[in-house]
Structure formats: structure tokens, C-alpha cells
Amino acid sequence: MELLKLFIQSTFIDNMVFSFFFGMCSYIAVSKSVKTANGLGLAVTFVMLMTVPLNYLLENYVLKAGALSWISPELASVDLSFLSFILFIAVIAAFVQLLEMVVEKFSPSLYNSLGIFLPLIAVNCAIMGGALFMQQRNFATVGEAAVFGFGSGFGWWIAILVMAAIRERLAYSNVPKGLRGPGLAFIITGLLGMAFMIFSGFQM
């Protein structure tokens, strides 16, 4: 039950795109067609589901003040948290690289459809943001961290899918010249964000 709450919270109430603006760059750039948006959303969700728990383990068994005491009690005073940025991003970049190789080997068709988006994920701020929020919120178990990662990724997926669908329809409308493309995309995202604000009144 707690985990379900956390999932709903991270998917809708704290939606990565609409309340934190994470992953905006690829969100605006890749939301031109539903098909590619769907592929990218899937990839982001998967990478978040894997990297947030990985970084959680790293944070709690290596980086935090006193986290190294499981090796020997003398290390209890070591605080490596200043290394967290570098290690988190290294885990994410390495995981994305690994994923790229696995997908290329086992499912060339998926690889071709995701193609350029896979390496882009490494610098999608939603993923690094997920890791940093995980660090701030002090989850109790690795399961909670995994649910948080999955929920956040899923929320991002929904957001980009909705956006792509709207933009496909917009291709046929008559928009003022200066507003075409990114300008309008931002304003639509703003309106979607207002719609998502109703979730913040949710009592769980």
C-alpha cells in the first residue's frame, strides 16, 4: 500500500516534467511524433527503474557519512558524499552504454527504432534528477527507491506521449509564425502543467 502511494505520488503529483521540469530538452525536441516519443519514454522509464536503485545502493553503502562501516568499523568516520555527483553520473552513463550494447545485440529492430535516443538518455536530466531526489528523500529500502524510479519514469513517459499526440494534431492548425515549433510547445506544456496541478490537491 505504501509503495502504491509512492508510485502515484511520483507519477502524478510530483510529475517529473510538469512540477520539476526534468528532461525538458528531449521532451521538447523529441515530441514531434507519437512513435518516437513512445520509444524514448519506454527507454527513460527502464533506465530510471534500474539506475535509481543502483545509485541508492551506492549512496547507502559507499557514499553517505559512515556508510562504509560495513567493511570495517574504523571506516565509520569516512564521508564520501562530495563524490556523489561524479559517481551517479558515471553509473548512469555506464548503464546507458551497457543498455545500448545489449539492445543492439539482442533486438536490432528495437535498436534501430530507438537509435540516436539511447545515448541521449545519459544527459536526460530526469535520470540524474531522479538520483539526486532519491539522495534527498532518504528512502528506507531499495524497493522504495525502485518504485520511485519507476513512477518518475512512467510519469515522464505519460507526459511526452500526451505532448506528442497534441503536437501531431497541431500540425494542421494555423499558428502565428513566430510561435511555431518550440514557442507553442512551451505554452502547451504550461497548460498541461496547469491541468496536472489538480493532482497536488490529492489527499493520500
Binding site: S19, F21, G178, L179, G183, F186, G190, L191, G193
Partner: peptide
């Protein structure tokens, strides 16, 4: 709130 920022950026781009 977040949506206002998006709309301001949209207008600046316009």
C-alpha cells in the same frame, strides 16, 4: 508555480 515559467518562455521565444 511551474506552468507560468513555461508560458513566459513560450512568449519570450515568440
Amino acid at each position: 508555480f511551474p506552468p507560468a515559467a513555461l508560458i513566459i518562455v513560450g512568449i519570450i521565444i515568440w
